[in-house]
Nucleic acid binder design. Sequence first.
DNA 1: GTAGGGTTAATA
DNA 2: TATTAACCCTAC
Length: 344
Amino acid sequence: MPPLAAADAFLVLEFVAGNRLVPPPAFAALLASLPSVSPHTSPRLRRGIALRALDAVFSLSDADAAILLRKARAVLADPDLASCFPDRLTLPVARDDEAAVVDLKRLVDVEWADLPPSTLEIAADRIAGDGALHTWADADQDTRKKLRLLVGESMELDILGKLGQGPSKVGADEADLTRESGKSGHAQEGCSTPHQQDPAKTTTDAPKLVTSATIKGKDKATSSYVTGLVAPDNHKTHPVTGSKRGLMERNRTATVYEWDDSGDSDHERVPHKRQLPTYKKKPEPSFPHKSRKKWSEMQEKSLMEGVEKYGKGNWKEIKIAYPDVFEDRSTVDMKDKFRNMERH
DNA sequence: GTAGGGTTAATA
DNA sequence: TATTAACCCTAC
């Protein structure tokens, strides 16, 4: 895989840094494997790294409350963090150290919950979330093609349906889309959302925190740990609709690995001989097969009608002709069903 | 995108 | 256990 461009590395890092579920070793490995993201940093990225530093302090199981407070105080005293937590996140004054630690943990939880969305999440929201209608309405033919690749046909159907532009405009029906080509496309602008950058800061500043030891050796690292997280399988069809899956849709056949962060601290690694963190395979998800759906009388009747009207084998035309009836049936389903019906 | 063989789950 | 409908896989 070619190395990520710095701007793309920023997007990945900014997203992952703010995800508390990503364990420290995985985050450290990601930092090491990505190209330098300087100077593309953001308040979210700095806050994410700062909160990770505090989480690292609280993860010290063998330290008593006084030690935890001292370490947390050191993190909060870092000048780089002052701008991250202007108001709420200050060392609480409590009756004793243990109570203060509890209070601080609670404040850290609140800060995690209040992290602003990442640039990637904002972009995703614009093409498939709350902002999707506006984006799709403004998109021209070419832009919609790109958007379709990202969200998948079923999501596109949903969005166009809400726009009142029926399902016949989707997919192969390029003629309809062509009629709209006069409009100018703005959707892609969403992908170039300002990165909330602070040009004065660089990521070489932020990692002065607890994670600094893991960041120092990052320049020459080439391992791409994240590539093993999810297996791309987007050439397959959608498990329910039969349509092509979008890049943003969950792939039920993907294998998911979890980082095992037990006893693996980065500073223990030998320079230039980086150790891959161990990982364990997650149990299979609980949906091994698409649940069997019996064909309704309406579906059977419409299928027969469609075959009479459009001819056997023109499953796609029939599906388009009865969008509501065959919403949850793929053309393969329809072919199989008709074959079954023919046997009687 | 479609056809046809194979597999699996539900039902008698 | 046999049958059948629904679903999957692969070649074209």
